[in-house]
Structures are given as C-alpha cells and as structure tokens.
Design a protein around this nucleic acid. Structure first.
Ligand SMILES: [Mn+2]
Ligand SMILES: [Mn+2]
Ligand SMILES: [Zn+2]
Ligand SMILES: [Zn+2]
Lengths: 150, 150
DNA sequence: TAAAAAATGCAACAAAGTTGCAATACGTTG
DNA sequence: CAACGTATTGCAACTTTGTTGCATTTTTTA
C-alpha cells in the first residue's frame, strides 16, 4: 500500500482506530474516480477475504464521521465515495453533485456549481434547506467512446 | 372515488388496462403532494386488502409507462409520485427536482428551475446528459412549524 | 505489558422486492 | 351479449441487501 501513512493520518483525524480492513477500504476508495458498492469493494479486496459485516460496519463508520458519503442508487443499494479533496473535510452534509451513467451505472462525484435558484424559491416558501444534491443522468465519456467506436 | 373517469382515461392514455387496484392506487397518488412508498399506499388502501406483489407490479407498470416516477430514498427504498401536471405527460426521463425533509422523510416533487451550469460543464467534458435531478435536503414547512411552536 | 474500549467474525434475522405459476379479470371481436 | 386471447392477480417461495447479538480478537493508552 503506497499511501499507508496518509491513510493512517486520515483515520486518526476522524477519530477512527487504525485497522487493516479500514486501510484497505480507504485505499480502494481513494484510487477510483467513481463511487463504489459493497460488492465492488469486496471484489477488489477479494485476496484479503474481508467479512461482509465488517465491511458494512467500516463503510457505516466512514459515512458517520464524514470521511465518506453514500449515494443511494436507483436499484436499491448504496455506493460509497470519499469526500472530494476540495470539500470541507469535516462537513458531513455538504452540498453535492453526481453524474449517474445509465450504461455502466457508475456514479461520479462532481464539484457542486452554484447558480440554481430553486433553493431560494423553496426557502421563501418556508422550506429550510440544509444541503442540496444535484444529479445528472446520461452516458459517461468511457461508455460514450465505446459506443462511438463500434 | 371522485375522479374515477379521469383516472380511467389516464390509464387508457398510457395503454394500461383499467383495473380496480390501479384506480385505487392512482387515486391515492393523485391526492397527495408528496411521493409515497409501497408501505404508505398499502396503509392508505388497507380496507381493500391489496396484495403486496400486485401493488409492486402496479407501481412498476406506472413507472415504466411514464405515468409515475420513482425516487430512491437514503434508506434504500422507493417512493412513487405521479408526474407533475406541467410535466410533458409522455416524457419518462424528464428533468426533476425534489425536496427531502430530514425530519419526516417526506419527499416533495418540485418544478425544476433552470440556471445551473454544471450541466454545460459536464457536457464539455464528454458526458452526455439525458436528464437531471436536483435534490434539496432540509426541513419542510409542516415540520418547521411544529418545531417552532413547541 | 496490562487494562479498557473498540473492532471483528459468525450465525441468525429482517426488510424490500422479485419470480413462477395457476386462477381470474379485461377488453375486443363477432 | 358471449366467447376468446391476453394481461393481471394472488399466493408461496426465493433473492438481495443490510442489521443485530454475542463471543473473540485487536487496538490504544498508560
Ligand atoms: Mn459524491
Ligand atoms: Mn418528483
Ligand atoms: Zn458509463
Ligand atoms: Zn417534514
């Protein structure tokens, strides 16, 4: 594992004990541009034979402390991603944007751009807004390229 | 049922056969401002003792033809809502906005406002956008009022 | 190195939704 | 209105995804 010390530091910053499983999961999450499911992570860590309950608990711990966030997919499961580098690190319910690929079902985390006025309108109507998520659906560059070449 | 004929017409427009269960479900969905779960609908239609599988199939049928749409919640189940009156009626993957109340977990369907430039940015980056969903999280007016009064 | 607290692994459980299949209802045609 | 073909329904069994309880092991701090 290349960034082991970085991961250890990160875990400590979020008051999580350093364990081998957590380091492995962190390594997987840190090295992908997309959000990953429990099944994805299990597959990538197959050689370490990680217990399924331990992995669920690890992902819940990451989510609870704000190290990661989870996104519910259309097909009733969750994908996990570390918060983006430019996110405030301890901000759990920060604004968020995602791109959902309809072909490969990958979910990309995006920086949230401002400019939408729906928020202001709803606040005038008495809704109290704490965070927002903006989801784009379509085809990701990888899938689009594949399609075009065939 | 007040609007029985309206519902029948609606079902026929979407090429669905008219059945009693579908009329009841349609009636429930048409008379709420929020998206409803399988459990919510079962409860509201308790007197008719609707089979759970039939209800799932009904909701799937409504979703597939575009009469309704479903929203995945954080706690891995689905809420269903009819498309809004000002939606193009046969547009299945139309743009959408939702307000998610963190207190009561109700999801309100909102008209989608424009003005966000994330879409344009991602298109420049090679993502093909087919639809977008914008989600606000916070406290709805009902819950906010309750809290304030106590 | 010892003690306290937290994490792990296993088995059992739970919730949400799907599948297969026989029985029933819908709607079209005559 | 009757009869037929097709779609829908109801039931039981199953699947997927995730949680809970509890005994054991690991981590951390002193
Ligand atoms: Mn994200
Ligand atoms: Mn909606
Ligand atoms: Zn893709
Ligand atoms: Zn509320």
């Amino acid at each position: 594992m290349q960034n082991e010390n970085l991961y250890k530091e990160l875990l400590r910053r979020f008051r999580l004990k350093v364990t081998l499983t957590r380091l492995h999961v962190l390594d997987v999450l840190a090295n992908t541009p997309v959000a990953l499911s429990h099944a994805d992570i299990t597959e990538q860590l197959a050689e370490y034979d990680i217990d399924k309950v331990t992995l669920y608990r690890t992902l819940n711990a990451f989510t609870k402390c704000g190290l990661a966030h989870k996104v519910a997919t259309e097909d009733r499961n969750w994908l996990y991603a570390l918060h983006m580098p430019d996110d405030a690190p301890s901000e759990v319910t920060s604004d968020h944007a995602h791109f959902v690929c309809d072909e490969c079902e990958r979910i990309y985390c995006l920086p949230m751009e401002t400019g939408n006025n729906t928020r202001d309108i709803k606040e005038e109507q008495g809704f109290v807004i704490r965070s927002q998520e903006y989801r784009l659906h379509g085809t990701c560059p990888e899938c689009h390229t594949q399609f075009s070449q065939q």
